[in-house]
Design a protein around this nucleic acid. Structure first.
Length: 459
RNA sequence: GUGGUUGUAGCUCAGUUGGUUAGAGCACCAGAUUGUGAUUCUGGGGGUCGUGGGUUCGAGCCCCAUCAUCCACCCCA
């Protein structure tokens, strides 16, 4: 047998990592619920048909497909071969694969809303935290299995929802200690107006894909890309002017009105942006007309969250408004707006800035040293009392040299050691040693739980 | 999907133009030390050199394949 290994792009999470991830996830969850969102979970797999064609050609290629069972049954041989022929042509075939792992949380959510729109109360606010899978080539900060963390409101056009979502970002990042984040905001209607002023709505996709890369490749290369996508010099010129707008939020709104204000779509978009930035009380919101976001289903406000500039990290969250997500599943007229947190990247940022609180990684708090068979049995009964008081405790599993027991405690980052030997038992006391400072105190056995509770809470 | 990088002990790595029985530091275990973490000393366990083929008298080293890794592109979180 060969050495055990993990599939490409997947990870095991150690206790420390799980504790830290849970700290992030429970913080987000708490805020979501505070804003009236309810949880939803959907299966790991969906029917392939549900997912295909929803993420563009590239996306279809990256969906993990699940091979049907029973293909080796002789009565299925012809079907399997026919299906295989189709796959060789680059097509999918239900003869071979009917199910796939979910690729994101949005499409399964849309499917859920389409299936249940009769019984849901609108506006429907749900959050969802689950793993998704993509058959992408892994690299820095990119995995084949990763956790998405979404909140959406469907069935309402009110801009109040956008305001709520920006405040959720603010609350979450403040609770996580990431006060220097930037929430970039733009409106797809303004981009649409830009496309129209350049010659037509059909240019929207090409323009958004190109300017979405501005951050990464610079203005010159964006111009080259626009040229390759078939735009002429005058069109590129006006896009460059658009991208050059800067200043405070208020100044940007004036500039954009001068540039595109005659266009109805632009007017709407600018109105929406103005309202959101005026109502929002946080200083972290920044209008950014270069923000485009690749996903084509966005139709109104779009968001993206940047980590503080001191850390080299792409976006740690994003979202936007869409008009007709459920139309794909035959239910029209349900608009929505949503946001997403990039949990893995937030993890890396908090790690780099050392923002995890010490209690985010707490394991065992107290260890009882094992000083012999009868002593340890006595210690065990005392330990049970300590556990009843909500303090996580363990007893060293065998009577070995204290040196070894100290090292064990050290490795497990346990804060306190309780020494309870024959001498102490006789005197009805025990010695409690704080392992970081080496300070040792004598405590009565009856008072041990209270002593530890007090110590741990004031640490 | 395209191009490149790396893979040797638990960890970090060395290993000469292919040549005896593959090394170091850290970690681990035991003893010096049978109730207080250090230091020091002594001894010890650990490797099918990612995997499978090939070339060769001989392969950790060369060739092919494969798996994993990291990086860039594409795309995206």
């Amino acid at each position: 047998m060969s050495k055990p290994s993990l599939p490409q792009g997947t990870r095991d999470f150690s206790a420390e990592t799980v504790h830290k991830r849970n700290y992030i996830l429970s913080t987000i969850k708490q805020v979501f619920e505070l804003y009236g969102f309810q949880p939803l979970e959907t299966p790991a797999m969906e029917n392939l048909e549900t997912l295909m064609g929803k993420y563009g050609e590239e996306g279809d290629r990256l969906i993990f497909k699940i091979l049907n069972n029973g293909l080796n049954d002789p009565k299925n041989t012809d079907k399997a071969k026919a299906g295989f022929e189709k796959v060789l042509e680059g097509k999918n075939s239900p003869l071979l694969t009917e199910r796939a792992l979910k690729y994101d949380l949005t499409i399964p959510f849309a499917r859920y809303v389409a299936m249940n729109h009769g019984i849901l109360t609108f506006p429907f606010k749900r959050y969802q935290i689950q793993p998704v899978w993509r058959a992408d080539r892994p690299q820095k900060g990119r995995y084949r299995e990763f956790t998405q963390c979404d909140a959406d409101i469907v069935g309402s056009n009110a801009l109040m929802n956008e305001l709520d979502l920006t405040n959720i970002y603010h609350d979450v990042f403040n609770k996580l200690g990431l006060k220097e984040y930037t929430l970039k905001i733009n409106n797809r209607k303004i981009l649409l107006a830009l496309a129209e002023s350049c010659g037509g709505e059909h240019l929207l996709t090409d323009i958004t894909i190109a300017i979405d890369k501005l951050d990464k490749i610079g203005i010159d290369k964006v111009k080259i890309e626009l040229e390759q996508r078939g735009l002429n010099e005058a069109q590129i010129k006006s896009i460059e002017t658009y991208l050059g707008i800067n200043g405070t939020n208020a100044e940007k709104l004036i500039s954009i009105t001068q540039l595109l204000g005659v266009n109805d779509n632009a007017k709407n978009g600018i109105e929406e942006l103005t309202w959101i930035t005026q109502q929002s009380t946080t200083a972290n919101i920044e209008i950014d007309f270069t923000l485009a976001r690749g996903l084509n289903y966005y139709t109104g406000s779009i968001f993206e969250v940047k980590a503080p500039e001191t850390v080299q990290m792409g976006s740690i969250g994003g979202g936007g408004r869409y008009d007709n997500l459920t139309e794909l599943f035959g239910v029209a007229g349900i608009p929505g707006v949503g946001i997403s947190f990039g949990v893995d990247r937030i993890f890396d940022v908090l790690e780099e800035l050392n923002l995890f609180p010490a209690n985010a990684q707490l394991g065992t708090q107290v260890i009882f040293f094992n000083l012999g068979e009868s002593e340890s049995l006595y210690a065990y009964s005392i330990m049970q009392d300590v556990r009843k008081n909500g303090i996580s405790a363990e007893l060293y599993h065998e009577p070995v040299k204290m040196d070894k027991q100290f090292k064990f405690a050290d490795k497990k980052k346990i804060s306190y050691a309780v020494i309870l030997g024959s001498k102490e038992i006789e005197e009805k006391i025990c010695l409690v040693k704080h392992l970081k400072t080496g300070i040792q105190e004598s405590v009565t056995i009856d008072g041990l739980s209270d002593y530890l509770k007090n110590k741990i809470s004031t640490e």
